[in-house]
Design a protein around this nucleic acid. Structure first.
Lengths: 345, 345
DNA sequence: CTGTTAGCGCGTTCAA
DNA sequence: TTGAACGCGCTAACAG
């Protein structure tokens, strides 16, 4: 690979002049500008990033540490963050904690070693010490989607309480009183907030407070299956269920499908259970009956996260946001028959 | 941030000794090892990556440039690649070309500047010059999922021909003769291969060669909607459709749903169209009728891709692979009723 | 086994 | 406006 020295030699100027032309920092004569530019093109010169970073003590790279890249919410968030970052002259280094605190800690070290300029993170929340260390080391930090206590960091999250309120109000309006809840892990802030909101609005709306209706997963599909099975096995007979994230909704739908007439002792078959999801997935309109959902705006969160992070990096205060949710009511849609123009199989 | 100099000073040893201890390269006395380790821990020392890279002229970072991070196939591939890379001591820098050749070129530059040790790429295929430049610059390269002509690079792809064969044979066995095809873009190798295989096996099996049954998208959901609409608008009346990738399958399913009795002039309503997808998505079993699919093993491709790339980096020849597909027959499953334990709404 | 030193490629200061 | 020289933090080569 050609170095700036090669470029300078070919252009017949000094190394300093070549550097000034290429980084466009200082004034240079039109003559040397032309010659250096030409030489750089001819040699296919691309500046050595590590050397540059070492000298400038900045990398123009942002880290994004998501909880689970296979979760559509986070891949959409990542996509939006990447676009916004690129618009502002930063590159995004994406890493995946896979809902695992150890892996999160490992990537935190990697990022620190790479000397990224700032970090966007959806924290697991089980152990904050590594985050504290980074923070004390002076790394600009912004939380997306989730947050952890005791760390004063700009946070871009969803209005979880209002989202849950929308879902329960809607279910209540449809006549449901036995509403099950498949929540997220209590270690994670969104898990806690959505659970608290469920309990609160459940009571305010006068829905059944049967504790057997409440179960918890880990925001992954398989845990949704297990949680829903657990609810059904407990003997509870929900007419509807609210799932706290999109992947678990997939699991819940699977579990309900598998369940059939429930349990060994169940004489009475299970009526159709209406599903409502926190997170709207693109296939919800295709199942029967369609799944209504709280829209959780990953794109806005990714975009605002980068904005806040760049603000912090450049010395401005980063703004926190609670992004509003909306509710997608699919009760009026035909549902089913993805492969057919008719309703019903 | 503490530097290795600080660590050496605190430990009371020379800079060289500190370096030797921390990188574990050479032999060191137990005494200095203990003191350096302690000092490093106390100062919360994390080596400066850029400086390290500059000196060693390697970064221990692999690039992964995917076509579309929101495509579940690629997020799964990325996840697998990341795991395998970590296992081998590399970090993965993930970037998203968003099915756009310009963005691909931009990230290629970024990667080159970062001096990554090797690149895993699912190329767009429209313009190979930037890839050639990298290749000539000596960057180890491996293609995943897709490939481009004229570049002798290890390639880990799917056995597209056999996948399509499985799908068409299965459809033929179910009695379908009017089978539509929603293909990918011809600029992309997988688009071309799946199309060629469709045409070949369509003819071998004696399926209808009506050209109105064939349409093309760009591997994104919206294009699946458009392609399916185009087929229906042409007046063709397929009884089944093969979609060339998972996201387009979503679009196809939507289009069929929306279509209803087709067109303004259509007197006869459209019978149920059976959908088969190249790429199996996790919700296919939940729609009605369920969507059968060719399993495209993203995990294997990601894993083998990293293996091949590391081989190339370390001077061994990288092995190409055609990963086998399998067919998931869901015709026997109940389908529909995601929210119910009963079949039917 | 350890201390000293050179230099990776670049941006920037100081003189000219 | 330009050239020369320094040093960012680290590893490796050499001498002791």
């Amino acid at each position: 690979m050609a170095t700036i020295k090669d470029v300078a030699a070919l252009a017949g100027v000094s190394l300093g002049t070549a550097s000034r032309v290429l980084s466009g920092s200082s004034q240079t004569s039109p003559d040397s500008r032309a010659r250096v530019t030409a030489a750089a093109k001819e040699l296919n010169y691309i500046a050595n990033g590590p050397a540059r970073s070492l000298r400038r003590s900045r990398t123009d790279v942002l880290g994004l540490l998501v909880s689970d890249i296979r979760n559509p919410f986070f891949s959409e968030l990542a996509h939006a963050a990447e676009r916004e970052a690129q618009r502002r002259g930063y590159t995004v280094l994406l890493a995946n904690a896979d809902e695992d605190a150890d892996q999160e800690a490992a990537y935190l070290r990697t990022f620190a070693s790479q000397r990224i300029d700032g970090l966007l993170i959806a924290p697991q929340g089980s152990d904050v010490t590594p985050l504290h260390a980074l923070r004390d080391g002076g790394l600009p930090l912004v939380f997306v989607d989730r947050s952890v206590e005791g760390l004063d960091v700009p946070t871009i999250g969803t209005d979880n309480e209002d989202g849950v309120r929308r879902a329960l109000t809607w279910l209540h309006g449809r006549g449901h009183r036995e509403v099950a809840f498949v929540g997220g892990p209590p270690e994670v802030s969104t898990g806690r907030e959505r659970r608290a909101a469920f309990l609160r609005f459940r009571d305010e709306l006068g829905l059944s407070a049967d504790p057997r209706l409440v179960a918890h997963g880990d925001f992954r599909a398989e845990s949704g299956v297990e949680a829903m099975h657990a609810v059904l096995a407990s003997g509870a007979r929900p007419t509807a269920v609210l799932s706290a994230d999109g992947l678990m909704t997939l699991g819940v739908a699977r579990a309900l499908r598998e369940a059939g007439p429930v349990g060994a002792d169940a004489a009475e078959p299970l009526d159709a259970v209406e599903i409502v999801s926190f997170d709207d997935l693109d296939w919800f309109s295709l199942v029967s009956p369609p799944i209504s959902a709280v829209r959780n705006d990953a794109t806005a969160i990714g975009r605002l996260g980068v904005t806040a992070l760049v603000d912090v990096i450049e010395g401005r205060p980063g703004a926190s946001h609670r992004v509003a949710t909306s509710f997608v009511d699919r009760s009026g849609e035909p549902g089913g028959s993805a492969g057919s123009a008719e309703a019903g199989a």
